[in-house]
Structure formats: C-alpha cells, structure tokens
Computed example of a mutant assay.
Amino acid sequence: MASIRAPGLPAGSRPAGSHINRWLGHRAAKPVGFVLALLPMAWLVWAAFADQLGANPAEALIRSLGDWTIRFLVLVLVITPLRTVTGWVTLARLRRMVGLFVFFYACMHLLAYAWFDMAFSLPAVVDDVIKRPFILVGFLGWLLLLALAATSFNRAIRAMGAKRWQLLHRAVYAVAGLAVLHFFWMRSGKNDFAEVAVYAALFAALLGWRLWRRLSPPRAA
C-alpha cells in the first residue's frame, strides 16, 4: 500500500511532531517522567534536612507541597489540549501518571499539615476543618482527588463503564476550582493574589477550551 503523507510535505518527510511522538512513546519515557515528577519532593526533603527552608521550615514545606499540587494539576489538565493542538498523541500515555502525582503531592501537603500544624491530633484536624473555610475547601478537594485516584485504573473503568467513569473524572475541574479557592483564602491574610490570579486564569482558559471543543459542531470529514 502506498504511504500517505500530509499535503505539502516532501516525499519521505515525517509530519511535524513525529519525533516527539516517538520519544514520548519510548519505553523509557514513563520512568524518566516518574523520576522528574519526584524531583520536587526530593529537593524539599533535602532542603528540610539541610535547613534550607527559611525561618519557618514547617510552613515553607506545607506551602511548597501545596504549590506543587496545583502545578501538577495544571500539567494534567494541559495534556489533552496540548495533544490536540500539537498532534503529540503519545502524551496521553503519561496522563494517568501525572494525575496520580497530583494526588501524591496533595497527600504530602495534607500529611505535612497534619504533622507540623496539628501534631497528628485527629480532633484538632476535625475542629480546624470545621472552623476554617479554606481548610474545609482544601479537604474537599483532597476527597475528590481520592475518588479520582481510586478509579484511575483499568479495572475501575471496566467496572463503572466508560460514560460514568468519564463523568466522574470531569470532577477534576471541580478540584481545580476548589484548589484556587483554597489558595485564594490562604493568601487573603497577606493580601497577595498575584499567583492566585495566574492559576485561576490558567484553569479558566483550560475549562473554556474544553467547553469550546464540546460545543463546537463536528468538522466535516
């Protein structure tokens, strides 16, 4: 069968992005991605032991873990638009791993809070969740992430059915909204909203892109 090439490309040339797809599809791509995703955690652990986290290391560790949670959340949400726009289809094979790292950093954020702020006192944590809205919002976001992480495997997809699974996993946008609200309330005490505005704009743009794609009429073949 004759090879099919995109119009305007010289014979024997590869479509744009084919090299990226080949690299992302390599069996080493996931292990490399896994190591890269762990680097922020490794640096924070080293910085804590080396006393490099400033005058209040506990607060710095808690907030840094929260920052990395929201950064990985942006990363997992940008995979689909980036894959669609660039044609890097093999990006999809990294999406589950990145999503699980969102949950991992959220768990580390929660663990650091429970350890350094609450001394692992469950009654104190429950009281704080009830009394402080930004803690409640953050905890609700973590619960949603827990549901998404627990159903991120192929067995869960088969058990739930594809449609119900997809409906549940659209809750990642609710997680994004709760994360921004949590971040906003946390920064309100210092009246510092610049970084909050950046994340809010990114999530709004990603959600807008998703809605635009869903509402746009299908293109003719």
Rank of each mutant, 00 (worst) to 15 (best):
M1Q: 15
A2K: 11
A2G: 08
A2V: 09
S3P: 12
S3N: 11
I4Q: 13
I4C: 12
R5P: 02
P7Y: 11
G12M: 05
R14C: 13
P15S: 04
I20H: 05
R22N: 15
W23L: 13
L24W: 03
L24C: 04
H26P: 08
R27A: 13
R27Y: 12
R27H: 14
K30T: 12
P31F: 12
V32K: 14
V32R: 14
L36R: 10
A37H: 05
L38V: 02
L39G: 06
L39A: 14
M41K: 15
A42H: 08
L44G: 04
A47D: 15
F49P: 06
Q52S: 14
L53I: 10
G54N: 03
A55D: 12
A58E: 12
E59N: 11
A60S: 09
A60E: 05
S64T: 12
L65V: 00
L65M: 08
G66T: 02
W68V: 07
R71I: 05
F72M: 09
L75R: 06
L77Q: 03
P81R: 00
R83S: 04
R83N: 01
W88T: 07
W88V: 05
W88A: 10
T90F: 07
A92W: 04
R93N: 05
R93I: 02
L94N: 00
R96A: 05
R96L: 07
R96Y: 02
F101N: 02
F101K: 04
V102T: 03
F104A: 11
L110S: 04
Y113G: 03
W115N: 05
D117M: 14
A119E: 13
P123W: 07
P123R: 06
V126Q: 13
V126M: 15
D127P: 07
V129S: 09
I130V: 13
R132M: 10
F134R: 04
I135Y: 02
L136V: 15
L136W: 13
G141F: 00
G141E: 01
G141P: 08
L143D: 07
L144E: 05
L144N: 05
L144S: 06
L144I: 14
L145W: 09
A147G: 14
A147P: 11
F153S: 06
F153D: 15
N154P: 01
A156C: 03
R158S: 07
A159K: 13
A159E: 12
M160E: 01
A162P: 12
Q166N: 12
Q166H: 14
Q166P: 09
R170L: 14
A174D: 11
V175S: 03
V175L: 04
G177D: 03
F184G: 10
W185R: 11
M186D: 15
G189H: 15
G189V: 15
D192K: 08
F193A: 03
A194W: 09
E195P: 00
E195F: 08
V196T: 11
A201V: 12
F203E: 03
F203G: 01
A205I: 08
L207I: 11
L207K: 06
W212C: 10
S216K: 10
P218N: 15
A220K: 11
